[in-house]
Write a protein that binds this DNA or RNA. Structure first.
Lengths: 183, 183
DNA sequence: ACTAACATGTAACCCGTTACATGATTAT
DNA sequence: ATAATCATGTAACGGGTTACATGTTAGT
């Protein structure tokens, strides 16, 4: 049940509406944990039910009203406790790897294309990560404790992204030695 | 619906029983795609229903009989087609990253412990990967096409594992500068 | 008039996990 | 006897995805 905890983590800094959370989950925390707005609204209901979140309606002009959630004391306690729960590693499940097991002359061009697209995607993401790092995390040793944790998450994203690029290059290189065969 | 395709991929080389598949999913393909025996048995039923797999009972002596599955022509075709389906990237969801966002003096020791455990786990896995690489994939350019794909999956695992170790070291280093505070 | 952004939800379905269930054979 | 390995399944639950559903305001 980590989505709930991810939401509460996001609410530690600011009170947010479901809509704003969904936007956040497309960036920042969302780099490491994705969630759709549907999922977020359902989870917000559950968390409110447990009294881990409080809600209040905020009247806006020029926009529809929104329901803003904040983390309660009980929520903070539950979150702090959760950090100590044991988690077992979950290997990433990636279709691309299964597809690679099916590599053949008929699909080598397609797979090279998929890898190229992933490479492009990762380049863009890395550009963003690096921008954030330079702007906010230039000197990690000097950051306040909590921000050090956020920096480490970012650093993992950067490391993994860079290595993924290197792998893409190796893969494309090897694939280019295979004779492609049209359909 | 990639588990089904992962199963069919495993059956391309050999006909296997559910039990044998479950064992395979603890190694080889299972490095990149995990599945429990419960899930596999259910998926086998579905795939049989679609006539993508055929089954036959094999009588054994000294052991309970087993039901062995093989991929049909229709299954091969569906699998070959699936390779061309577009997949969107799914970011790995890792509790540890959410926990890191909650880094504080009260949990720094615990989180350092979790990272150390992950590092250990990854070291063991890398040892295995390297053994397989040396034994079966020493000269990737010379492999037959399909095996080149398997090699690339292995190479990704190795690259990512190595970079993860590096990240663990960086993380433990940074965490060691934070004053821990007992509960 | 139309599109994009803002804003919130429900329902159905699929996939994965956990728990439950059974039973044979081999080795200690 | 008991544990380990071989072998196959069902049922309940929880989480995530897709589809459906509604409505406002601002800009072109």
């Amino acid at each position: 049940m980590a989505l709930g905890h991810a939401i509460m983590t996001a609410l530690l800094e600011d009170d947010l509406s479901g809509y704003e959370l969904a936007k956040d989950f497309e960036t920042s925390l969302g780099f490491f944990w994705q969630a759709s707005h549907q999922q977020i609204y359902q989870e917000l209901r559950k968390l409110s039910g447990k009294h881990w979140l409080s809600k209040r309606e905020v009247t806006q002009r020029g926009k529809p009203n929104k329901i803003v959630y904040g983390i309660t004391k009980a929520g903070r306690e539950a979150l702090a406790q959760w950090v100590f729960s044991t988690t077992r590693t979950q290997t990433a499940k990636d279709d691309l790897l299964v597809k690679l097991y099916n590599l053949g002359p008929g699909n080598v061009a397609h797979l090279a294309g998929e890898i190229t697209a992933r490479r492009e995607e990762m380049m863009q993401r890395l550009y963003l990560y690096e921008k954030i790092r330079r702007r906010h995390y230039a000197a990690p040793e000097l950051l306040p404790t909590r921000r050090k944790g956020v920096y480490l998450a970012l650093a993992l994203g950067i490391h993994q992204g860079e290595q993924f690029l290197a792998w893409c290059d190796e893969a494309l290189d090897l694939l280019s030695t295979i004779e492609s065969q049209g359909l």
